[in-house]
Every structure is written in structure tokens, then in C-alpha cells.
Design a protein around this nucleic acid. Sequence first.
DNA 1: TCATTATATGAACCATTATTCACCTTTATT
DNA 2: AATAAAGGTGAATAATGGTTCATATAATGA
Lengths: 222, 222
Amino acid sequence: MATPSPDHLSARKKPRQARSRATLDVIFEATLQVLIAHGPRRTTTTRVAERAGVSVGTMYQYFPHKQALFYAVNERYLDILAERVEAACREQHGDSIKHMIDVLVTTYWKAKTERPEMTRALYRSVAEIDNEPLIQAFSQRIDAATAAMLASASDAHFTDLPTVNLTLLSTVFGTVRSVFEHRLPDAKTDAVLRQLMVMCTTYLETVSTASSAPASATPSSE
Amino acid sequence: MATPSPDHLSARKKPRQARSRATLDVIFEATLQVLIAHGPRRTTTTRVAERAGVSVGTMYQYFPHKQALFYAVNERYLDILAERVEAACREQHGDSIKHMIDVLVTTYWKAKTERPEMTRALYRSVAEIDNEPLIQAFSQRIDAATAAMLASASDAHFTDLPTVNLTLLSTVFGTVRSVFEHRLPDAKTDAVLRQLMVMCTTYLETVSTASSAPASATPSSE
DNA sequence: TCATTATATGAACCATTATTCACCTTTATT
DNA sequence: AATAAAGGTGAATAATGGTTCATATAATGA
């Protein structure tokens, strides 16, 4: 399904026994914890191994080097995040635009703030790796999910769905990240997110060729 | 003026002669170049010194440690960026909302894309430092600048200016960053930025308690 | 049971790198 | 010109940290 990782970043070998699958989980969680506690610069292989309760050698059986570990942790996170967004989008099929926006913003915000320190740590960890392939794959999944959702809206229809969708995603994801990183007091955060929803809803209404009320302007064939 | 840097990150001493001011400039530029060429992880004091054509000892005369150097480079960049945005805002005083938005988006976008690799390198470099004080100071300056600009708009008036302003900034800056980092083809980039302007303009019109325009139902198209 | 494969260990190795300091050179001051 | 102050040098130091590998233990299958 997803684009395979470039080989210089992919895992060395895959776990075959239950034992090693558990080890991998432990390593991932330990990586996150060290990343949170010490920052990416002080996240060393030995420290992670120590925290995970395994030896460095074990880590090197699954990851050819430190970057591959960071890469894998990011991959896992983005996978879960994408799944959540996809699920949320699927659930809103056929609903109203306003509802879709609300859910999209809320879902993304929640995903980021459930473990805020983890989110921050992951943002920082990308300095050590080239995560563009990951971001690319993630974006495509989200793009497809929201495009399908928007196309099914009960109260709108978009002639240039790709552009509208891309705009919506850039705006929602960009703004949410911006708000998240600014550590505003809760009241302000809530206010901005609410305004963001208003803004996006209004935008979609503006660019929508109203579906329930038949278009007065003729849809041009392209 | 700006919040003073925390002492553990501030420069060791200030240049008194023209010679050393030039040295500092060279060091800053070298840091950027190494950051771009090798990434933050491989940006070592020796490499920077080499590139700058000075000795490591010289660098340590101005910066107590590597982080202080990164901090200073970021500080300089954000200072210039803030100045540019402030200037742009000042120039649009008394103008229309639409114009303000256009200029704000364009100015920020240009600032980021004039030296895109530098922008990317700086984004990455923050993993090594705690740049929150810098971001805080930057945000406040921008906030003040755009608030003053919005308050002077010829075709709008805002009852809750702080919230509107915060929303606008989160949206514009967040979205621009998002678009910048996604490396979209030029055509798509342009399209999204144009849509962003429409979106923000419409938003400001919606939340504006119309000052000059009649408060009738249909807002005229521009 | 025994052979084979998967998994785990961690001391040792090597390269890298941040930082210092004793000394030198240039510029300012008297 | 003489002295002081600012600026600059770079080999040496000390610590860190990524990676390997010879070896050990556990699981699997025949």
C-alpha cells in the first residue's frame, strides 16, 4: 500500500516471533520517551536501549542506524494519525459541510494534543532524518480521504475539487499546527479553532456551486 | 526592544571594532551555508569555522557554545523577517482589507521563498535549541503590527480585534508554512495562496461590523 | 531429541566533536 | 613610540556516542 521506505532508511529485518514483535514495541515507546525527556540531540542509541531494557545490539538487529529508528517511529505515528483521519472522514460521508469541517478540525486537534509532548518531540526529531517520503505518503492518504468526503457533501458541490481540497487541507493542518506550537491559553486556542471552522465553512460555501438549488450559471464542460 | 536572550544562550561579548563585526557576519553566513549543506546534525563548530575562514577559537569568543550560535542565527533571521512584515503592515495603513491580506500573504511567502533552502535549514536547526523565547518575541511584534494595520482598515471595523487578528495570523502563517513545506508545483502553490487570500478576505468581511459599506444582505463582489 | 534458525548481549573499537588556553597579531590610546 | 585592549589562532584535551561482532540463549521443526 504505502510507498516503501528508501532502503537506506528501512528496517534491517522483520520480526518473525512474538518475542521480537514485543521488543520492537518496547523500542518504539522507549525512543519516544527519551525523545521527550532529552530532545533529539541527546537521544542516543545507548540511552534508548537502556530505557527499553534491551541491549544496543538488539536495536541494531532491526535498524541499520539511528536515523532508521527515528524514521520508523515517525512512520508509525503518521500511520496511526492517517488512519484516524481517514476513519473520521468516512464517518461523515454524505453529511453537511459544516459538520465535516468541525470533525476534521477536532479530530486533528485531538490527535495532536492527546500526547502533546510526544507530538512536539516528533516534530523535532525530523531534523535528524529526511522524512519527505513519509510526509508525501501521508498527504496523499489524507488528500484522498477528504476529497472523497467533500465530494459526498449533502449541501455542496465543487467544480474544482482538487484545488478546494488542497486549500482546505493546507489551511486546517497548517493552522492547527501553528496554534499547537504557540502554546496559547486554552480560551484563546478554543476561540481560534472555532474561528477557523467558521472560516473554512464560509469558504466552502463560497466556492460551492450550490447543489440543492440548481445552478443558474451553466456548468461548463471541460 | 526585544526580550533579552536567556544568558545561557546569549553571546559572550559584543564586537567593538569593525573587524570583529565583519567576522560575526562571516560566521553567521557560514553557519547558514553549513546548515544547508550538511544539516544541523553535521553542522560542527570546526566545519563552520573552516567555512568562515576563522579559527574555532574566534567563534568561542562570541558564543559560549554551539547552541548559542544557532540561537543567534535564528534571532537574526526572525528579526529581519519581523522588520519586513512590520514595514509591509505600516505601508498598508488605511487601505482596504483585501489589499492588506494580499500584501501580508505575499510578503510572508516571499520572505520564505527567496532563499528556500535557508528557510528549511533554519526550521530544522531549531531542534537543537530552545527557540521559544524567540518565537514568542516574534509573534508579539507581528501581532502588534497586524493589529494596528487591521484597526486602520478603511472598509471594516472589528469588535473583537484581538481574536480576529490572532485567527488571521495563525491561518496565514500556518498555511503559508504548510504550503512551503509541501513543495507543491508552482501552479498549485499559486492556486492555494490565491484561495487563502480569498478565504481570509471573506472571513474578515464576515466578522467585520461594516463601517462604510451599507449593512444590507448581499455583499458586493469586488 | 538434536540441529537449525531467530533473537539477544554488551564490551570494545573508532571516529567525531565540543571546548579550552597559552600565545600571537592587530588596533586603539596615551 | 609605548602600552593596553581587542581580536584571533589551532593543537591538545576529554568526553561522547554510533556501530560491530564474537558469543550466548531461546524458539522452532524434524
